[in-house]
Design a protein around this nucleic acid. Structure first.
Length: 451
RNA sequence: GGCGGCGUGGCCGAGUGGCUGAGGCAACGGCCUGCAAAGCCGUGUACCCGGGUUCGAUUCCCGGCGCCGCCUCCA
């Protein structure tokens, strides 16, 4: 069974399932106001790997991931560009999923939108007000964090400690709040801003409310796993949890957070730094599988450097995998080596140790190649195991694929020329094929072509 | 000021009180090959510094130095 680090308990512990055979996961999705960046890519890729692995073990996974389609930054951009805010959200959502398709991240099973849940948010906020845990101000409705037991669990810092030091930071909405950590649940709208009706006045929901309402609606109380980037740990996830606790509801049973994407100097990547911080650019300029490979080779909780060298190395390693797939395309697909698969499972069950799993995969490829070279009958099982691991990790390994008839014919003539020891012709034909973009591999069994 | 993390070979990046300097990339040597390509085999005297614990520490403890993250924008 999978053991995962839990941010709430600060230990690696078994991911207990509420319902046997089924996993319920909530992943905080994007706010759609701009193009997806590398950080988005990392989070979605890490949880895509988790999901594929869970499914491979035979579990039924329900993965809910929201789209935040109403938020201050969306409104700001709409005003700046003088166009309807829905224009921005629909366009950005489309681009988002194009990018996800590009890196082969499977769609979540459910994609709720914040704007579809405003009524339920209003209802929830009403309950919090009734309970005396939220209060009205001229600015909006705030949650009183002092009324929440265990506030600071995910921040790993008590409310008292949180601001015990450097208090020089500006506190947003300080003039209205009872406590600096209180956060807005409902924001009253200014003229011209999108708004929805509520018992307290027209406005829009605060960012932290949608995920509570949507996760509880779609997954129900005590769902298995809540995940997202490290940066969401506090305040976003803390504040989600605070609302659920304030309501007296059981929330996520396990909290998972992935590490940051950092630049060459080790500093957290922000939108304004680095020339490939846009995910679409990365997909465009390199093998779209490369980013996944880079991530697989380090642990999901570690910071990851996305640099030219890293990406280049990943691209090269993928080429090796593709060559392996091409070479083994004709190897009969027998049962995968059980020991290898067991080792794979052991690695993944150990807090998703993808570096170990990936090392195992490459090592299995090496062993399979050696067995193939030696005409060893165990080769088939090793080939099957290596390819099964690659598939489970979401690495779309490219084998020979479709080769057009004329290229096949040229390859056949190449082989004929070699048999006749007419090497001048053979070399000419090979150069011809290479010029057409083919990787030509000539072996004693004949010539194979791949892109 | 509070809380947390990190410092490993040419690069990236795992890991462990001795059995691994995993794995990827790069480099060098060899095998195979008509030549290439692919593949295989081999080559690298590492663990920030100073103490301590120990038969033995890169791994545990203490103290430094350096870097990073969070403390209401953020995946």
């Amino acid at each position: 069974m999978l053991r995962l680090y839990d941010t709430a308990t600060r230990e690696v512990r078994e991911l207990a399932l509420r319902e046997p055979g089924k996993v319920s996961i909530y992943l905080c999705g994007p706010t759609v106001y701009g193009p997806p960046h590398l950080g988005h890519g990392r989070a979605t890729l890490e949880y895509d790997i988790l999901r594929r692995y869970l499914e491979w073990t035979g579990l039924e996974v329900r993965l809910v991931s929201n789209i935040t389609d109403i938020e201050d930054k969306i409104i700001e951009r709409a005003q700046r560009e003088d166009r309807p805010w829905q224009d921005i959200t629909t366009k950005c959502e489309r681009v988002w999923f194009e990018a996800m398709d590009g890196i082969d991240v499977r769609r979540p099973t459910d994609v709720p939108h914040a704007t579809e849940y405003v009524d339920q948010m209003v209802e929830m906020i009403g309950q919090l007000v009734d309970l005396g845990r939220a209060y009205d101000t001229e600015d909006g409705i705030y949650l009183s964090v002092e009324t929440v037991e265990g506030y600071g669990l995910l921040a790993q810092q008590s409310l008292d400690d949180m601001r015990s030091g450097g208090g020089e930071r500006e506190v947003f909405g300080a003039e209205f709040k009872r406590h600096p950590a209180d956060f807005v649940l409902w924001k009253y709208s200014k003229p011209g801003e999108p708004s929805w009706p509520s018992p307290w006045g027209d406005g829009r929901p605060g960012w932290h409310s949608e995920c509570v309402v949507m996760s509880l609606d779609l997954l129900g109380e005590g769902f298995d796993l809540h995940c997202g980037g490290q940066d969401l740990r506090f305040p976003h996830h803390e504040n989600e949890r605070a609302q659920a606790v304030a309501l007296g509801k059981r929330f996520a049973n396990h909290w998972m957070h992935n590490g940051f994407v950092v630049d060459a100097e080790g500093e957290k990547m922000s939108k304004s730094l680095g020339n490939v911080s846009n995910l679409l650019d990365l997909i465009d300029q390199f093998d779209p599988r490369a980013y996944r490979m880079v991530l697989l080779q380090s642990h999901y909780r570690s910071p990851v450097k996305v640099t030219q060298d890293n990406v280049d190395a990943a691209v090269k390693s993928l080429e090796g995998l593709d060559a392996f797939a091409a070479r083994t395309a004709s190897v009969a697909g027998g049962d995968a080596d059980v020991d290898v698969l067991d080792a794979f499972r052991a690695a993944m069950d150990d807090d998703l140790d993808t570096p170990r799993a990936t090392a195992l995969m490459f090592d299995t490829v090496r062993r399979a190649n050696a067995a193939l070279d030696a005409d060893d009958p165990t080769a088939g099982a090793l080939v099957a195991a290596a390819l099964e691991i690659a598939d489970t990790l979401g690495i779309g390994v490219r084998g020979v694929g479709e080769v057009p008839a004329d290229a096949v014919a040229t390859a056949a003539r190449l082989d004929a020329a070699r048999t006749a020891k007419d090497y001048a012709t053979a070399d000419r034909l090979r150069a011809e094929l290479q010029a057409a973009g083919w990787t030509v591999e000539t072996t004693k069994d004949g010539t194979t072509l791949r892109r």
